[in-house]
């Protein structure tokens, strides 16, 4: 097993640490640039919606946040499972680094949804299948974070977290298809690969650009957190000391 893993050059914290450090500024810059364009298009150029007025402009952050909340959960569960099955340290670290960002996007999806629901449905919250399953996703993220931080033995915590993450991943298709399977107050999918777009193209472009911005943001933040956790866990290793010493000559910005 260990020989086959040598092909994965960046599959160890020691190799990934400097690579992630180089990529973070680029992902950050791309996120800022795309978010600026998306906000310009969505908030200044896009026309007022005929039925919802300007309340619909919440869509430009609500849908990207909701997509990221589900995508990050799947990615977290995937790396947690890889870390468990192949005893790969970096994969487990990445899974743990994703969780707080995923939880944040889940919270933002719920928050922006509540502020959109009040003016359009007349309610901040309803126990509708889509909303309830998204709330369960938040509990899964929080439960994962609580579980891994409650177990002192790092690798045991990783395995317990992986089990929770993998079992909990059944919730993701439930969220996605909830608007199809149940009669929900929440509207159906706004974007589909098979059907023609249901909204003006400037709105669609703004929403997709914001999704890419959130995606690049998630990469940047998760990579910095991966670097932090790698140093915390492998403080005894010579690579960690070398990496910190290499960063010391430039005391300004070293992400």
């Amino acid at each position: 097993m260990s020989t086959s893993w040598r092909f994965f050059r960046f599959a160890s914290p020691a190799a990934f640490y400097p690579l992630a450090g180089k990529l973070v500024p680029w992902f950050g810059a791309v996120a800022a640039m795309l978010a600026a364009i998306a906000l310009y298009l969505g908030m200044l150029r896009a026309p007022t919606d005929a039925t919802q007025g300007d309340a619909y402009r919440i869509i430009f952050i609500h849908v990207p946040a909701a997509w990221m909340s589900m995508l990050l959960y799947v990615v977290m569960a995937f790396w947690a499972a890889i870390g468990w099955a192949f005893n790969a340290r970096l994969a487990s670290i990445v899974a743990r680094a994703i969780a707080p960002t995923g939880a944040m996007f889940t919270f933002l999806a719920l928050w922006t949804g509540a502020l959109w629901g009040k003016p359009t449905w007349g309610a901040w919250w309803v126990w509708d299948a889509r909303l309830t399953s998204e709330l369960i996703l938040l509990f899964l993220y929080v439960g994962y974070l609580a579980l891994v931080s409650a177990i002192d033995d790092t690798r045991r915590a990783d395995r317990a977290g992986a089990l929770l993450a993998v079992v909990g991943s059944v919730n993701v298709p439930i969220i996605y298809f909830s608007v199809v399977w149940w009669n929900t107050l929440h509207q159906g999918a706004s974007v589909s690969v098979t059907a023609a777009p249901k909204m003006a193209s400037v709105m669609l472009i703004a929403m997709l650009l914001m999704t890419l911005a959130f995606w690049a943001y998630a990469f940047a933040v998760v990579f910095v957190r991966t670097r932090a956790i790698s140093l915390e866990r492998e403080a005894h290793a010579s690579w960690a000391n070398d990496a910190v010493r290499a960063a010391r000559p430039e005391p300004g910005m070293s992400t």
Partner: peptide
């Protein structure tokens, strides 16, 4: 509603 959503995000 709109600025409340954007501010927290």
């Amino acid at each position: 509603y709109v600025w409340g959503a954007y501010a927290v995000t």
